[in-house]
Simulated scan of single mutants.
Amino acid sequence: MPGPKALSIREWTCTACGTVHDRDHNAALNVQQAAGPAVSACGAPVRPEPVLAQREETGSHGFPTGNRAA
Rank of each mutant, 00 (worst) to 15 (best):
T19L: 09
R55M: 05
W12H: 08
H61P: 01
V51Y: 01
G66F: 01
Q54I: 03
S40A: 13
V39L: 15
E57L: 09
A34M: 14
A69T: 00
A38S: 15
V39R: 13
C17Y: 03
I9K: 08
L52Q: 06
W12C: 05
A41F: 04
P64F: 03
D24S: 15
V46L: 10
P64T: 02
V39T: 10
A41L: 08
C17D: 09
A41G: 06
N30A: 15
L52I: 05
E49M: 12
H25P: 01
R68T: 02
T15R: 12
A41E: 05
K5P: 02
V51S: 03
N67R: 01
C17E: 01
H25M: 13
A6F: 05
R10P: 02
L7E: 13
G36I: 08
G3Y: 03
G43H: 05
P37G: 15
P4A: 12
I9C: 12
T15I: 13
M1V: 12
T65D: 01
E56R: 04
E11T: 04
P45C: 11
P2W: 01
A70I: 00
H25V: 10
A28Y: 04
H61E: 10
A53H: 09
P4K: 08
S60N: 07
A28C: 08
E11H: 05
H25N: 07
P4W: 03
A34P: 02
A34V: 11
P2K: 04
A70E: 00
P45Y: 12
E11G: 02
Q32Y: 11
P64D: 02
R55I: 03
G43P: 01
T58A: 03
N67Y: 07
P4H: 07
V51G: 03
G3E: 10
A27E: 14
G62S: 00
S40G: 15
P48L: 11
H25D: 08
T15S: 09
G59E: 05
S8I: 10
P4E: 11
R55Y: 04
V31K: 14
C14Y: 04
R47T: 12
I9L: 12
C17S: 08
N26W: 07
V20P: 01
H21D: 03
I9E: 13
L7Q: 07
A44Q: 12
A6R: 05
E49D: 14
A38L: 12
V20R: 10
P64M: 06
R47C: 15
S8E: 13
V39Y: 06
E49H: 05
K5W: 06
A53D: 11
Q32K: 13
A27I: 11
W12R: 06
P50Y: 11
E56Q: 10
E57K: 09
F63M: 04
V31R: 13
L7M: 10
P50M: 11
Q32P: 03
F63E: 00
A16H: 07
A28S: 15
G18H: 04
C42H: 14
A41V: 08
P37V: 15
P2D: 07
V39G: 12
R47N: 15
R23Y: 12
D22Q: 11
G36L: 05
P48S: 07
R68E: 00
A44E: 15
R10S: 09
P50C: 14
F63W: 00
W12K: 05
C42Y: 03
T58N: 04
T13S: 14
H25A: 13
E56V: 07
N30K: 11
N26I: 09
E56C: 11
N26A: 07
K5M: 08
A70G: 01
A70Y: 00
K5Y: 09
